Computed example of a mutant assay.
Amino acid sequence: MTLSLKELTAEADRCVACGLCLPHCPTYRKTGSEADSPRGRIQLIRAVSQDILPNSARFKEHIDLCLSCRSCESACPNSVSYGTLVDTTRALYIKKESLWLTVAKPFIRHRALSYICTWPLWLLSKAKLLGALKRIVPAAKLLPAISKPIAWKALYPATKPKHGAVSLFLGCATNAFDNQTLSASIYVLNALGYDVHVPTAQTCCGSIARQAGDAVEADALLAKNGASFDRTMPILSTASGCGAGLQDYLTTHQVQDISTFLINCDWSVAEITPLQQRIFVQDPCSLRNGLKAQKAVYDLLKKIPTADIQALPGNGQCCGGAGAYSITQPEMANTLRDDKLTAMQSNQVSILATSNIGCSLHITKGLENAGMDIDVLHPVQIIAKQMGFRA
């Protein structure tokens, strides 16, 4: 939740400045600046909230550089709610309407508009003209590969004896750029005996707006989602960033990462083809520090016979994706991503599993720039393929 000014100061006062968070902070590791550490940022937040320091451009720079990865929360002995502190600070002091957010907002709000606009991009990619568009329009270089847009049904009934019903959260980026993971999720859930509901009125989770300091827009999107989803069934998210945002702020509903839900299903009805390959897993910060559900991904992938499941070295550090961070802070985002690329290269990774669309897009773009041929897939898509799913 977003705090009041008084609550913000009180929460900041709970930090005892012990410094145990410092080695866990990605930006502090890179800059070595106390002002770019959780402890330093909390001191700055406290000082600005009490009018000891001004809300200056320099203050904004240090807050903007924060990834909101929340690794510091996992290390904090006093359980300071750092994520809530930064969300509130951005809403109170950092709010800005950037050009990219102004342009993107209608597409984030309205899924139908996004659906309409992805069609020409997909057709350009099929005609191998997307490269020409990227040369003509520099901003188009940020576009990832586009899957054929899907008009979702409201209900996908179970193909096995029914065990229950769930709702699937589409997300704005996942729906536009990774609808194959959503299709794979429906396939697996149906095969395990679950009806899958896809509410037509659902919208963005609000995390991108909240990261930009627009709490009003974020709360409006949350309210729309709250009215769209049935409270009697769990909301499953394939993007851990969306799942963490919904779990933190949409408290009226039960929200779960899809891997967490699947690991507790009855798999006796599933036929899974063996896969004699090593799969490395990248832990998104939102899954590790927000949902605290990274173990479920490994347990899920271990259901694939003969597959060797390994954690990507350096999983404790953010990849730099972090929602819109790769757009707003490209230098730091790319520096952090380089560490992931180095880890993948040194470990001869051929398949990387990640549970967050932001991580997937950011890492895939880095691999493309580096000329590295590595499949980056959602864990559900990997197991779905071994169960017979074909994109």
Rank of each mutant, 00 (worst) to 15 (best):
N190G: 00
A191R: 15
G193Q: 01
Y194C: 02
Y194T: 00
H197M: 07
V198S: 00
P199W: 00
P199Y: 01
T200K: 13
T203D: 00
C205D: 02
A209P: 04
R210C: 11
D214T: 09
V216Y: 12
E217N: 12
E217K: 13
D219H: 14
L222N: 13
L222V: 14
L222H: 12
N225W: 12
A227R: 15
F229G: 08
F229Y: 14
D230I: 00
R231H: 13
M233P: 07
P234G: 10
I235G: 11
I235A: 10
L236Y: 12
L236V: 13
S237W: 09
T238Y: 09
S240H: 08
G241S: 11
L246A: 08
L246M: 10
Q247E: 12
Q247I: 13
D248L: 11
D248K: 13
Y249N: 13
L250T: 13
T251P: 08
T252H: 09
Q254G: 06
Q256V: 09
Q256Y: 10
D257K: 07
I258S: 06
S259W: 06
T260M: 10
T260I: 11
L262T: 03
L262K: 04
D266Q: 03
W267G: 02
W267M: 01
V269I: 15
E271V: 15
E271D: 12
I272D: 03
P274G: 03
L275W: 03
L275T: 02
L275V: 01
Q276T: 14
Q277K: 09
R278E: 07
R278M: 04
F280N: 04
Q282E: 06
D283V: 03
S286I: 06
S286K: 06
S286W: 03
S286H: 15
R288C: 02
L291C: 03
K295M: 11
A296E: 10
V297K: 05
Y298V: 15
D299S: 15
D299F: 12
L300W: 04
L300V: 06
L300S: 04
K302P: 08
K302L: 10
K303L: 09
I304L: 09
P305M: 01
A307Y: 03
D308A: 09
D308K: 15
I309W: 05
I309C: 05
Q310A: 11
L312Q: 02
P313D: 05
P313S: 05
G314M: 06
G316A: 13
G320C: 01
A322K: 00
